[in-house]
Design a protein around this nucleic acid. Sequence first.
DNA 1: TTGATCGTGCAATTTTATTGCACGATCATG
DNA 2: CATGATCGTGCAATAAAATTGCACGATCAA
Lengths: 150, 150
Amino acid sequence: MDRIDKRLLNLLQKDASRTNADLADEVGLSPSSCLRRIRRLKSAGIIDRTVAILNPAKAGRGLRAIVTVELERHGEQHMRRFLDLAAQEPAVTQAYGVSGQTDAFLILRLADMDEFDALCDRLLRDQANVARFYTMFVIKTAKEATSIPL
Amino acid sequence: MDRIDKRLLNLLQKDASRTNADLADEVGLSPSSCLRRIRRLKSAGIIDRTVAILNPAKAGRGLRAIVTVELERHGEQHMRRFLDLAAQEPAVTQAYGVSGQTDAFLILRLADMDEFDALCDRLLRDQANVARFYTMFVIKTAKEATSIPL
DNA sequence: TTGATCGTGCAATTTTATTGCACGATCATG
DNA sequence: CATGATCGTGCAATAAAATTGCACGATCAA
């Protein structure tokens, strides 16, 4: 992975819809060389996939919430069982098991408060193993990147 | 936005590298109709952009951390000043101002602990306005979606 | 110096996206 | 009811882009 590969990755992380010829021109390569490099990055798994990113508000999911969860019992299988349940919820976009102040960590994308309430009932209140959970609603989004710095 | 649009959006959120003819076939449309719908979704801003998603481990950023931050002074401009600083850090991939247990909320993608230490010095310890911060390191990633449920 | 390996650029080919055009459905209006 | 307008659609032709084969030049080890 040389400097040109990194530049290509940065460009593709910003906008993957550009044409190969366009990218090649920007990094100073011929189209075929550029294409071969990108294909190599894909087959090596460095580029995992390319996806469309939607505007949350226009897709009807403008409400974001962050939830920290403390479990009653802390065993490996209890943790996994909770995280698996959480991952199945479409509104849960990120679900982590963490070390530190709490056990698990969820990021939610919701249409409205009713959906939040329903999700809480289903995932957090009816779950016998959840000891406590704290919800923080996102007021201001300063940064929300899908890209990884290189 | 009818049922076909939603199906297209779901397909594109999973994989935006598919050919138009392929998508058209899957949703039962002609290539031209399909292309026109997708173009409409883009120009309406529902599709914000299409990006390449990298494999964090293979891109050298396997360490994930979540940081909650309590500020000393809580005014609007203090909050914004802190979030702007945080957003400028490449390792900060998400930065939110939130209501509830804490003031701000960061998600970090790091190469190693040295980078974490340096970031803390720069953003959290040297910042006179940060009262307290709690770090949680991600042990298990159960879900990490870029897609929004429709 | 020589031979091998690797990445590169050019040009031809194949695949894909795009556009013009006419048809059919839906809906408000005469 | 008929009528005309609007909208989305499919087909076929065209334009654009990706992909491939091939030969060149740089780099490095023997």
